[in-house]
Design a protein around this nucleic acid. Structure first.
Length: 645
DNA sequence: AAAAAAT
């Protein structure tokens, strides 16, 4: 890569000082805008989507730096506007911002076709299925939900990007969470897998930074400490990368810079990336701690903190690191920053831990209906360990025979151990099934290669440990097989959530035997709430199992309490904690929205999701009709989406 | 007894 400004740095200004890295120039030494801009034009030239979305190059230039200022004025909040940022990037950014939409052009083509169909079919959508969207919010003065993105002033640039993402309408979690977050409130949000959580916390962060007053990520003179304004933490490297890809799309041409850091990859390159300025840092905990300890990242400017898969982040293995990051650094305390926690599952105990990080927060729970669990046909088979491979083979053969196999119909197989993943992959491959495997013992490059190969359909089967259970948005996963059941029901929820995304149908098959008895009860409850047929033998197992780690009855160890009695995927623990004096006061309010119609939503009858659900939910009786067969309409039509979950 | 996450 050419180093445009290294000369400039070396001559004069810094002659006596330690020579900076060739790739790094402190913001105050970067060249002025006009010189830079001409170079920009040259480098940026072929923007595929420009014609596609009818954008003019002028508007792109406008978008760089000016938009923020214009918006700031428009809101009367002024302050920093575009100026603070452009001191270290924006017009001055030496590295042209890559077009984050280019990579998904194919996907857009697909989407256009599908959304046309969706419009045709719109009236066929079974809105009875959405009759009782249970949305519950609690906390003081909860900002009301919106029905359209336009109802919130997210700013011109962000609105443009939302359009480019083809998000026509907010998903339920977005409708509720975005107004809460844009109002500056802390938030604990429980929303189903595949329901658009990433955008729900990204939009407010981007919007907030753009309109904020702080000088944000401008680096101190001569220092190489990056001071991001927004921090997004996630539990796996791949998920962090995925979030980063989304953030780049949402923040495109806003002048904001998003960088991702994670382990298993050369830290030097990541240092280079953050040195160029970072407004929004996406990270896995370990690498971030490392960078903080090396004084390369400071969290003192953090105004927005988001934890994705927050329950996992506060789980035993992670809690220490998270506390270190959130409570033992120079990060501003709750109240001085805005904190948002998102997950599909939120056990009480984790909520209790999480409240340490929050200040007067709103709890939001968006229920199952219209979410992935309703769109996933769940099936449990009693299979002994020694029969699992044969049964898996039968399933795969049956899928192949019915054409539900290949690029558009991926199968994700979850196993318990890393070793198990490797051996199953080998076995599948040697039996003629193109499979790959992903787990934490593989080097990062292999992990990424496996994921790519799976996504592309080159190997339509992927064997995975729980490294792939959370958050990953892999289009076209039509079948999730729990070859080994997880120990905790929450993990089951996340695993099956890899299918049935963005309104698409999915199937989940679990191999269950006596070693899984501990989660039988929680599994039955979960399936019943998702209106799934539960085999009689499984109910019997549930009766037999004394205490499951998921039903709230168990004691000791990691606790995954599943609220059998709740209609919701999540439940504000504050509302049944008498001891919690902070929130049981009369000043707190408790909203319970049932149905997009009960809460007047004239748009609910047209399209429900950001990416319209094109497939009406109709329970497939054929799924259970045959013991081994798979339904013909398996998987339905796909509506690919990004930023879901 | 498992997976993940820093080197």
């Amino acid at each position: 890569m050419a180093m445009y400004w290294s000369d400039r740095v070396d001559d004069g200004v810094h002659s006596g000082a330690r020579p900076p890295r060739a790739s790094y120039v402190p913001p105050h030494l970067r060249p002025n805008s006009f010189v830079d801009e001409s170079r920009h034009r040259f480098h940026e030239d072929p923007y595929a989507f420009d014609t596609r979305f009818g954008r003019h190059r002028n508007s792109r230039q406008l978008g760089r730096g000016l938009v923020g200022r214009a918006r700031g004025l428009g809101r009367g909040r002024g302050g920093r506007g575009g100026r603070g940022r452009s001191q270290h990037h924006g017009f001055h950014d030496p590295v042209p911002e890559a077009n984050p939409f280019e990579a998904v052009v194919e996907k857009f083509d697909e989407l256009e076709v599908l959304s046309e169909n969706a419009e045709d079919n719109e009236e066929a959508i079974n809105f009875d299925a959405y009759e009782d969207i249970p949305v519950e919010s609690s906390g003081e003065n909860v900002p009301p939900p919106v029905d359209k993105f336009e109802e919130i002033d997210l700013g011109k640039a962000l609105n443009e990007n939302i359009k480019k993402c083809k998000y026509v309408k907010p998903t339920p979690v977005q409708r509720h969470a975005i107004p809460i977050a844009v109002a500056g409130r802390d938030l604990m949000a429980c929303a189903q897998t595949g329901s658009g959580k990433t955008a729900a916390f990204c939009f407010p962060i981007i919007c907030g930074i753009l309109s904020g007053q702080s000088s944000g990520s401008v680096m101190p003179r001569g220092a190489r400490v990056a001071c991001p304004t927004g921090l997004i933490l996630s539990p796996t490297r791949e998920l962090s990368c995925q979030i980063h890809d989304e953030v780049k799309k949402f923040a495109y041409q806003t002048g904001l810079k998003a960088v991702v850091v994670y382990g298993g990859a050369p830290i030097v390159q990541q240092f280079r990336n953050i040195e160029r300025g970072v407004d929004i840092l996406v990270a896995t905990p370990g690498r971030l701690v490392d960078m903080i300890e090396r004084d390369r990242v400071s969290l003192k400017k953090i105004k927005y903190l988001a934890l994705d898969e927050a329950d996992r982040m506060l789980d035993m293995g992670f809690e220490h690191q998270i506390r270190k990051i959130v409570q033992q650094t120079d990060m501003p305390p709750p109240g001085s920053r805005q904190t948002m926690l998102f997950s599909a599952t939120f056990p009480d105990e984790i909520q209790r831990l999480a409240s340490d990080f929050l200040s007067n927060y709103v709890f939001l729970s968006v229920g199952r209906v219209g979410s992935s669990t309703d769109l996933i046909s769940q099936k449990v088979e009693h299979v002994e360990d020694m029969d699992k491979r044969n049964r898996l083979m039968e399933l795969l053969q049956s899928q192949r025979a019915s054409g539900k196999y290949g690029k558009q119909s991926l199968t994700l197989v979850f196993v318990e151990t890393k070793r198990g993943a490797d051996s199953l992959e080998t076995w599948l491959t040697s039996n003629g099934f193109p499979a790959t495997a992903i787990h934490g013992d593989k080097v990062q490059l292999e992990r990424e290669r496996a994921l790519r190969s799976f996504k592309s359909g080159a190997t339509p089967i992927m064997v995975a440990t729980d490294v792939a259970s959370r958050g990953l948005d892999i289009p076209h996963v039509s079948h999730v097989i729990n070859f080994d059941m997880p120990r905790a029901i929450d993990d089951y929820v996340h695993r099956i959530g890899r299918t049935g995304r963005a309104g698409k149908h999915g199937a989940a098959t679990a191999f269950f035997n006596d070693s899984n008895l501990p989660i039988a009860r929680a599994l039955v409850t979960l399936m019943q709430e998702a209106k799934q047929q539960v085999p009689a033998w499984l109910k019997e197992c549930a009766g037999k199992s004394s205490h499951s780690p998921g039903d709230g009855g168990g004691g000791g160890g990691r606790s995954h309490r599943y609220r059998g009695g709740s209609k919701f995927g999540g439940y504000d623990y504050r509302s049944d904690t008498a001891a919690n004096v902070d929130y049981s006061s009369s000043s707190s309010s408790h909203h319970h929205y049932v149905d997009s119609r009960a809460y007047v939503n004239p748009y609910a009858t047209t399209s429900y999701a950001a990416v319209p659900y094109s497939v009406p939910y109709v329970a497939d009786p054929g799924f259970y009709a045959t013991q081994h067969g798979y339904p013909a309409a398996y998987g339905g039509e796909s509506v690919a989406a990004n930023g879901w979950d």
